[in-house]
Design a protein around this nucleic acid. Structure first.
Lengths: 223, 223
DNA sequence: TGCAAATCGAACTGAACGGTTCGGTATTCT
DNA sequence: AGAATACCGAACCGTTCAGTTCGATTTGCA
């Protein structure tokens, strides 16, 4: 196939393309997803209408259906994007060179703050609400979010145990325990609508500090 | 108004009535709520149709609308009933006269088992999913469920602290911590659909045992 | 400039929804 | 027996939805 093939050239190696094939402009795709995010998160999956999403995204209905097959496809794509966007940065927190107690405090506090934020709480609400009908989507969100953090924690605990600074018979259990401790009394009232606002900084401090204290009391060599 | 008022007598003091006024037969009301429970829990609030609920309950649509004002009224009544039914019995677990460690183990294990059961997980899914639009309903469910258990725990911890067997600077925090520890690694995968089955008895044992161990390591006087 | 096509905007389809109405039936009280 | 009525079942109403269609308009490339 010569480089001058008239109409079929699928991938012109040119770096800067201005015009895209129908349904293949990533900026427009993002624009649609952003509108969908607003409507889905504040209406829920069923109550959100495609017309509202079009209006919020500033895109015609025809165009939307060029970029996405339907409502469920749009929703799945949105959840996938949010998952990566929300939990992509978290891993770095554990890499810093700090005393264990401080490292745990900062990591746990950040996770709790993230999980209790308006944006993530609303995302969890809608995903949990649809996980009866779409369990694999919920599982993917869980794996890419909390379970990823769990993996980091397990590695840390195993290393600390190997170094003789902790005694951790079950690193998986310990990982779950630590993160649950960090969100104790914070996340559940948020999910159920009992706490309309994200926790105050002092509340986050208190929970994370208490988590580290309890955790280290149980798993330190001296404990 | 004489007692012999012909058509308006509202409360005939007779003890055993066989025939009920329209929309006032409690058995029929329960029958409707039971059908609504099935449909709501497996379809979600929006996706559940009143026609499906009528069919599931074995009741005509007209009758349903005599007993309930509409979909939301039916849903609210159902949540209220489920809340009482599910969490009504739990309180008794803490009254037994047992060593603290055993009492905590049994209580925590039972709570975790309940919270992770199919029925309660599905109830939580739908309530969390609708708590964006109906926060007060979610808050009531939370208060009647987990928060009630928290109250019991706080009283226990305060008593144990007063007796010199525990050192608990913040009984509210400690209560949240203990229950979160009992469900660590169990509830969240259930809610997100990652774990399709309730946790096995051994998993519940492991979580509750680990919770008691960590908790007592942190809050025992010797700790 | 002129052409091809990506997008717009708005109307439209068919189905499903919540809720209402109404005549017929079965039950229970007098 | 007879009257009263709670319930049934099915048709019906207006609305809203996801998804489609199509001419008009804008946009980028030759």
């Amino acid at each position: 196939m010569p480089a001058s093939a008239p109409d079929l050239m699928p991938e012109p190696a040119g770096a800067a393309r201005r015009r895209h094939a129908a349904g293949e402009d990533p900026a427009k795709r993002d624009q649609i997803l952003e509108g969908a995010r607003q409507v889905f998160l504040e209406q829920g999956f069923d109550a959100a209408s495609m017309n509202d999403i079009c209006r919020a995204a500033g895109v015609s209905k025809g165009t939307l259906y060029v970029y996405f097959e339907g409502k469920e496809d749009l929703y799945v794509s949105l959840v996938e994007r949010e998952r990566n966007r929300l939990f992509g940065e978290v891993d770095l927190l554990l890499e810093q060179d700090l005393p264990l107690a401080e490292k745990l405090f900062l990591y746990g506090r950040r996770i709790a703050e993230l999980m209790c934020s308006d944006r993530v709480v609303r995302a969890q609400r809608i995903i949990i609400g649809t996980s009866e009908r779409m369990p694999e989507l919920g599982a993917r969100f869980y794996d890419g979010g909390m379970e990823r953090a769990q993996g980091r924690l397990r590695r840390l605990f195993a290393a600390e145990a190997a170094a003789g600074r902790l005694v951790v018979p079950d690193v998986a259990l310990a990982g779950h325990q630590f993160l649950e401790l960090c969100m104790a009394g914070l996340l559940r009232p948020r999910l159920f609508g009992k706490a309309p606002e994200p926790p105050a900084p002092e509340a986050l401090d208190r929970a994370a500090h208490g988590a580290v204290a309890v955790f280290l009391a149980a798993y330190s060599v001296s404990g």
